[in-house]
Amino acid sequence: MNENHKRKVDTRVVVETPEGVDFQFVIAGPGTRAWAWLIDNLLKLGILAGVGILLSAVGVFADSSENFVAGIMSIIGFVMNWFYGSLFESWMNGQTPGKKSAGLRVVRTNGTPIDVTSAIGRNFLRTADMLPFCYTVGLISMLMTRRMQRLGDLVFDTMVIDERREWISRTGGLTANIEPLLRSECPRRFSVPERTLAVIERLFESDRIISDARREEIARPLSEALRKRLGYQDPAPDPRNPHTYFRTQGFRHTQFILRVLKTFADDPSGSKGNSKNSGTLMDRTTKKKERSERDSSYEENRQLAGLSSGEPGRES
């Protein structure tokens, strides 16, 4: 039963390092991989066209015939066709330019970097995965395997991981439709310690089987303490539409701690006591997307783990 319980529908794969530590990879789905493939193919075309133009330009001066150019071109075409992926993947540690732009990387299923043989092999088997059209075989194979591997990945024991780590937004779908707290609603303080957030998170962990009513009961003392800390007062019922007020009263503590979670866990600048809040939340999220996503989340974690981004060793 326990085994079944762990088998979630999830794109995460846990890999155990030789040091005995588990860490997680996010498996890349067909869409992202198709995008990377598209970029790679455009690049291939670009390289072919560029070399072609260059060669013919040189050929005009060097008086070598078009046959020579055609010969070189078909060799380059051959290399592009069969070795483009493997050359880049072994040179750039599992990434082609397309994969890099999409934030993907090929690794072995034990998490170690890909070796040359596997890189060549998985790209050779593309021929079979492409059949009969549009990677149908590969897609079926991806749907049938936990690590979303196409045949080339299966045979050569590799997987494609997504390094953008979007799931890092720790609250996930939990706070999707929740309004964040406004700064004006909390006259006293506008920060919640990390430990409290962790407690809230644990209360909502999906493998915890708690009824909503029981969760509300557990949430009450926490919610009351937080209200005191933030100085938050429930708004009075809207006289024009009291119905919504009374409908949400039943789970007001759950709702409140979810709002706390949304405000201080999703938006890292909130927990540092910055004055700006919900109004710019959207902007900040989009801006964050534009920046290198991995770096930003890494930086966030670094700060919230208790490490300021100042120079090392200052407060020791």
Binding site: T17, F23, T112, I168, E194, L197, A198, Y298, L304, A305
Partner: peptide
């Protein structure tokens, strides 16, 4: 805390 864990997880991944 998830953040601390994620931070260390990233360090381990880099080192790995």
């Amino acid at each position: 805390g998830a953040r601390l864990e994620q931070y260390l997880n990233d360090l381990v991944a880099q080192g790995h």
